[in-house]
Design a protein around this nucleic acid. Structure first.
Lengths: 219, 219
DNA sequence: CCTGATGCTGACCGTTCGGTCAAACGACCC
DNA sequence: GGGTCGTTTGACCGAACGGTCAGCATCAGG
């Protein structure tokens, strides 16, 4: 216990990103296991549907031990949401005004579809949160997300005006990419139930969405 | 109590559809109030997130009184889901092979969008159910829904083959209509947060989706 | 106005849940 | 081997939840 007075910060739990002390090997392992287990459970059951016991069991820990690393159920959920938002928005951030317009949009769509395929749990976690009115993300949505989307919408509008792509409402174009790609993760059971066995939804979806956006954007 | 021996069927609660006795005025009023309140609460909080007290309060009843009309929380939820499925599928059922292909598909899309606008709670109720793996609807999806979609997909495939519309994967065309229209109900807060004030999402969506499906389907 | 069925309620019950705590355990360093 | 700090646990707590029950209120029909 070097240098610090013992009066302030008695917190033993969760030496998170703001703390100075580096993470123990055990801390790293357990925190990672907890977050992975929590993602599994929260995405499948929603926030209120998930229980600490479920998460603890899935992480291979006891409930009090889990609460040694995180102060509350809410804290785990929040940590998941905030750390995921960056990954989730990264593909859109990479859309460059200098690129070839159709390529840029198609690449964005494909990357989003690939994320739905590779990270369905994350997609469902967000879907659950938004569905219930985004009680823990409302602010972020209205600021950070809006700024990013407005910026990219302006780029798309420029491409439309320059005749590089067919005229489209840029905001709703982005919404359509979200809706169409996330649908395959969020409604996975429905898609598979309707298609029946012997289908690979994502392979078919990629072909379909390629066609769809090609016909939509071709000038 | 005519004709029936008192030994069997002591059930006082919920004289539902299978019962012979017609519904009292009070029964009709209260059951309707309960289902409406339950739709409100379940769609906003999910099944486990909703509490009987919330539903009872929203319906203007006490909790025991609510349980006088329905035997359990589960029963209310099930009643909502099953009675909603028909309404939800009705627009697709109305798609006729004899109609003008583009009109039929565009009308279906517009009706689904209108349902999202007029019945967002119902849309979110379904979304919640599917998101969590459809534990209470899995069977129905794999049978009733699959049969209906396969039937309509065959019609669409015929239209494609006849050159009436551009070639498309019919199943994924239907998925895309679901995804694009339900997105505006299920992700309402996100759409509004990104668009900001002064926008009517549904009016803009109708214009955008008209354009999208016109370009996608035009032979 | 009487009566039986329907409608309604306060009090209560068992369980589950999120969270706490004191005590024990264990690894590592002197 | 003893001390220390990080780690783990069993036992426990209060609140919330789904559901029950005995009894009271109310209503409709005769």
């Amino acid at each position: 216990m070097p240098s610090e007075p013992m009066s302030a910060d008695p917190m033993p739990a969760e030496p998170a990103e703001t703390s100075a002390r580096p993470l123990t090997r055990i801390q790293k392992r357990n925190i990672e296991a907890i977050l992975d287990a929590a993602l599994e459970v929260f995405s499948a059951q929603g926030f209120r549907g998930a229980t600490l016991d479920q998460i603890a069991t899935a992480a291979g820990l006891s409930k009090p031990n889990l609460l040694y690393y995180f102060p509350s159920k809410e804290a785990i959920h929040l940590e998941l949401l905030s750390s995921l938002l960056d990954d989730w928005l990264a593909p859109l951030r990479e859309m460059r005004a200098e690129g070839e317009p159709r390529d840029e949009i198609m690449r964005y769509m494909r990357r989003k579809l690939e994320m739905s395929r590779a990270m369905p749990r994350e997609s469902r976690l967000f879907a659950n949160e938004i569905l219930q009115g985004a009680p823990r993300m409302g602010g972020t949505l209205a600021v950070e997300l809006k700024v990013l989307v407005d910026e990219k919408a302006a780029i798309i509008r420029g491409w439309s005006a320059a005749g590089k792509i067919a005229p489209v409402d840029p905001h709703h174009l982005i919404f359509s990419i979200w809706a169409l790609t996330q649908h395959y993760a969020d409604f996975d059971v429905q898609v598979r139930a309707v298609l029946g066995p012997g289908h690979d939804p994502y392979t078919e979806a990629e072909r379909f969405l390629d066609t769809l956006f090609d016909r939509l954007l071709r000038p």
